[in-house]
């Protein structure tokens, strides 16, 4: 697993020498810090932020390769963050990780261009595998920026 990370992540290391740069966004601080530490242990350069605006600022200043975002956050929610990131940085892979996943949410997120959708509680290995898998097919998938569907830009399709 770790070997895979290095091998497939090699060509991604443009932004950091430490490894795959991952930005975690979740208002559950305890959770996101633990998860980020665990990802760090798996040789990833994981950072945790606790709200949407901070995350977007981070994306501007220090773009990650992968973002893991929660949907339900005070202030700016995950859908908005996802939309913004897809608009400004379509190369960033966004993985949605939420405790409030309905099928509609999943559909919305996938339509907005999320790479994967997970429901809490998540298995770290599963998450890791998904991150690797999506980075593998990255060049082809990201060459099509039409992934983002503008019809969903209507204030969120959430109920």
């Amino acid at each position: 697993m770790e070997c895979n990370t290095r091998r497939h992540g090699d060509h991604q290391r443009k932004h950091s020498d430490m490894g795959l740069r991952i930005l975690l966004v979740d208002d559950e601080q305890e959770f996101v810090e633990a998860l980020s530490e665990r990802l760090q242990m798996r040789d990833m350069d994981a950072h945790a932020v606790f709200d949407g605006p901070t995350a977007l600022a981070q994306v501007q200043s220090h773009p990650p390769q992968v973002m893991i975002i929660d949907l339900k956050m005070p202030g700016m929610d995950g859908i908005q963050v996802l939309r913004q990131v897809r608009q400004t940085h379509p190369l960033i892979r966004v993985i949605v990780l939420t405790g409030h996943g309905s099928e509609q949410d999943r559909k919305n997120c996938m339509d907005l261009g999320a790479s994967a959708y997970f429901q809490k509680p998540v298995d770290i290995d599963e998450l890791n595998t998904t991150i690797q898998k999506h980075l593998e097919n990255e060049p082809t998938a990201l060459s099509a920026p039409g992934h983002f569907d503008p019809s969903f830009d209507t204030g969120g399709g959430r109920t």
Binding site: F31, A34, G99, H100
Partner: peptide, 23 residues
């Protein structure tokens, strides 16, 4: 939905303990 959030805190914290012990 409400339980999932704290549940994943338990999940990740315990996972971290396991990671710390193994890594």
């Amino acid at each position: 939905h409400e339980i999932n959030n704290p549940l994943d805190i338990i999940n990740q914290k315990t996972g971290l303990i396991v990671d710390l012990l193994t890594f």
